[in-house]
């Protein structure tokens, strides 16, 4: 927590910080990944959770196979158009806030599969926060991605989002902007600006 200060010098045990920072601190250090091991990268993902790389050091080892419990979707592997529907449903089922890591070149860009069945990058169906290149990426690289994501989470303003609807970070035009069954807020005001919501958000913030 960046600006943690003792509230008084008497040492009564109070600390003061911004609510934003407190929430971010909690969120970034307890990511619950949903390991979507679609193919080869999934094996490296398992290796990452395994004994040598030990993801627990970064607070992200509580892998759960139910999307309802997770806030980090790790798309590890080749996404095909047949699978895309399922992945989109999984993404929609995850409660907000949620982040996505595209692990491997397949999920980042389609990679070596420029073929009739493969989605050319998961960002065609859902917004991605961190892309990890490599085929498969070494677990170190994915751990680095998680650290990067933690830095990103640090910069978010959860309170503003809570009060005013979604922040700018998710508005990538890939489908976060309309009403989903899981959304706690009504974003209909943002629907009008699916690709450039900034103006609207500025207006909201006034």
């Amino acid at each position: 927590m960046g600006s943690l200060k003792p509230a008084d010098s008497e040492g009564l045990g109070f600390l003061a910080t911004r609510v934003d920072e407190l929430i971010n601190w909690g969120r970034k250090n307890s990511l619950w990944p949903m390991p979507l091991g679609l193919s080869c990268c999934g094996i490296e993902l398992m290796a990452m959770i395994g004994p040598k790389f030990d993801l627990a050091r970064f607070g992200a080892e509580a892998a759960r196979f139910s999307p309802r419990q997770c806030d980090l979707l790790v798309v590890a592997g080749t996404l095909t158009w047949k699978m895309a529907e399922a992945v989109r449903v999984i993404y929609d089922q995850m409660p907000d806030p949620k982040w996505v890591i595209a692990m491997g070149v397949c999920s980042s860009s389609g990679g070596m599969y420029d073929s009739y069945a493969v989605v050319q990058g998961v960002d065609s169906i859902l917004p991605v926060d961190v892309y990890v290149p490599g085929c498969p990426p070494r677990p170190d690289a994915v751990i680095d991605a998680i650290i990067k994501l933690q830095k990103k989470i640090e910069r978010e303003s959860p309170v503003r989002r809570l009060l005013k609807g979604p922040g700018v970070i998710d508005e990538t035009g890939t489908g976060r902007n309309f009403k989903q069954p899981n959304f706690a807020f009504d974003h209909s005001s943002l629907d009008l600006h699916p690709h450039d919501p900034k103006a609207k958000i500025e207006e909201l913030q006034k």
């Binding site: 679609l38 095909t80 599969y113």
Partner: peptide, 29 residues
């Protein structure tokens, strides 16, 4: 078929030698 990546077609379009990396990713364990 949820992981059907079109390998056989890929071999036909890439050629014999360039298909090698794709064979790795068949049974990736």
């Amino acid at each position: 078929g949820y992981l059907h990546r079109g390998k056989e077609k890929t071999c036909e379009s890439l050629g014999w030698h360039k298909f090698f990396p794709h064979t790795d990713r068949l049974d990736y364990v």
